[in-house]
Amino acid sequence: YFQGQLNAMAHQIQEMFPQVPYHLVLQDLQLTRSVEITTDNILEGRI
């Protein structure tokens, strides 16, 4: 994955969860590489 793709995914998640800091979303995406998994992590309070 290149950074631009991760940034696009992070923006997509931020639209759904504007209360979660962008850098935390991006940090999780770098591990998961998945909008779905990061979204689940937010919903389950891991982020």
Rank of each mutant, 00 (worst) to 15 (best):
Y1M: 13
Y1T: 13
Q3M: 06
Q3W: 04
Q3T: 08
Q3L: 05
Q3E: 15
Q3Y: 04
G4E: 15
N7R: 10
A8D: 11
M9N: 04
A10L: 09
A10V: 10
H11S: 10
H11P: 01
H11M: 13
Q12G: 06
I13M: 04
I13T: 01
I13Y: 01
I13K: 00
I13S: 00
Q14R: 11
E15D: 10
E15V: 12
E15S: 11
M16R: 13
M16V: 08
M16A: 09
M16S: 07
F17I: 02
F17R: 01
P18H: 03
P18F: 02
P18E: 03
P18W: 05
Q19V: 05
Q19Y: 15
V20A: 05
Y22E: 13
Y22S: 12
Y22G: 12
Y22D: 08
H23P: 11
H23S: 08
L24D: 13
L24E: 13
L26A: 04
L26E: 05
L26R: 03
L26M: 09
Q27N: 08
D28Q: 02
D28Y: 05
D28M: 06
L29V: 05
L29Y: 01
Q30N: 08
Q30A: 11
L31S: 09
L31I: 13
L31V: 12
T32W: 04
T32M: 02
T32A: 01
R33M: 15
R33W: 15
V35A: 08
V35L: 10
E36V: 09
I37M: 11
I37G: 07
I37T: 10
T38C: 12
T38H: 01
T39R: 12
T39A: 09
T39W: 08
D40P: 01
N41W: 03
I42D: 01
I42T: 01
L43E: 05
L43I: 09
L43N: 07
E44S: 15
E44C: 11
E44P: 01
E44I: 08
G45L: 05
G45T: 02
R46W: 07
R46N: 05
R46L: 08
I47S: 02
I47Y: 04
I47W: 06
